[in-house]
Simulated scan of single mutants.
Amino acid sequence: MHALILLAVGLLACKGGGPEGPPKPPAYQLVWADEFDYSGAPDPAKWGYDLGGNGWGNNEWQTYTDSRTNASVANGVLTITALKEASGYTSARLVSKGKGDFLYGRFEARAKLPKAKGSWPAIWMLPTDWAYGGWPKSGEIDIMEHVGYDTNMVHISVHTEAYNHSIRTQKSAKRILDGATDDFHLYRVDWTPDSIRGYVDDAPLFAFANEKTGYKTWPFDKRFHLLLNLAVGGNWGGQRGVDDLAFPASMVVDYVRVYQLKP
């Protein structure tokens, strides 16, 4: 009898069902962050800017600047503001390229989104080296997108040569998130060699597996960097018009954090 009991306990332990419980999930460590616990311009050691007003491939209306009227830090948050000015719309697009480039990890940001019709805020990632060629060949990871005409509907997506919106094969998921424009919520992507998974307030929303068929379906084996921006108009954001009276409009970010697996 004692031998049978010991054998059963040993089998449970081998299956992770013994006294120590099931295997623990992977352990992540913080490797890069901006808590926005300062005042002034965004930290130049962590963020640069994309500048200009060329439509950005989407027929967007805004001109991106590095002005503190469009991107500033105070009271523990980053505020990116789109303004209607005499010359047109201005806004900001912050990039961590060359200051925070990553291969795999957990990427999260806590943010409050604008309500303005015509606004198009995004928290996302682009390839640093464009190893497989121009968009969409080298990939894109969208941690959060929202368009003002569809209030509180948040999206998580990836784009590749095989899967992208221009050929109607985009891999995406969306969810109505009550209070997305009134309160802060957590947007997150976990990126490993095998999959990209997206979460809103730690609830799973999106999953994209590595099909292991080459870069056309999985270009996500190269470095990517973070972007924070607020666009105006464009093929998606302006699909139902832009309400000039709804601006200025802002995306407010509480923090951005990047974790990677412990060695």
Rank of each mutant, 00 (worst) to 15 (best):
I5H: 14
A8I: 07
A8Q: 06
A8C: 02
L11R: 11
A13G: 01
P19R: 09
E20C: 07
K24Y: 03
P25E: 12
A27R: 15
Q29N: 07
V31I: 15
D34E: 05
E35P: 07
F36T: 07
S39Q: 14
G40Q: 03
A41P: 07
D43M: 02
D43V: 07
W47A: 03
G48F: 00
D50W: 03
W56Q: 00
G57W: 08
N59M: 08
N59Q: 10
W61D: 12
Q62H: 01
Y64E: 09
T65A: 01
T65W: 08
S67D: 10
G76H: 09
V77L: 03
L78S: 10
T79D: 08
I80D: 04
I80R: 01
T81C: 09
A82M: 05
S87I: 07
A92K: 02
R93E: 10
S96E: 00
D101K: 05
Y104V: 13
Y104H: 03
F107Y: 14
E108N: 02
A111R: 04
P114F: 03
K117W: 00
W120A: 13
W124T: 09
W124L: 14
M125I: 11
M125Y: 09
L126R: 14
L126E: 09
P127L: 06
D129C: 00
W135E: 04
W135Y: 13
W135Q: 06
S138A: 08
E140S: 06
I141P: 02
I141T: 02
E145K: 07
H146L: 12
V147S: 04
D150C: 05
V154P: 05
I156F: 08
I156Y: 03
E161F: 14
E161M: 08
I167R: 12
R168G: 06
R168K: 15
T169W: 04
T169A: 11
S172I: 14
A173Y: 06
R175C: 06
T181N: 08
F184L: 01
H185T: 05
Y187N: 02
V189M: 14
P193M: 06
P193K: 11
D194Y: 10
S195R: 11
G198T: 12
G198P: 04
Y199C: 06
Y199F: 15
V200C: 10
V200W: 04
D202W: 07
P204T: 13
P204E: 12
L205M: 15
L205H: 08
F206W: 10
F206T: 04
A207T: 14
F208A: 11
F208V: 05
N210K: 04
N210S: 10
T213N: 14
T213Y: 02
T213H: 06
G214Y: 07
W218I: 07
H225K: 02
H225Y: 15
N229V: 03
L230P: 06
A231S: 14
V232L: 05
G233C: 05
N235K: 13
W236P: 07
W236K: 00
G237F: 04
V242N: 01
D244C: 04
F247W: 00
M251F: 07
D254S: 11
R257F: 12
Y259N: 13
L261V: 14
K262H: 08
K262V: 15
P263I: 09
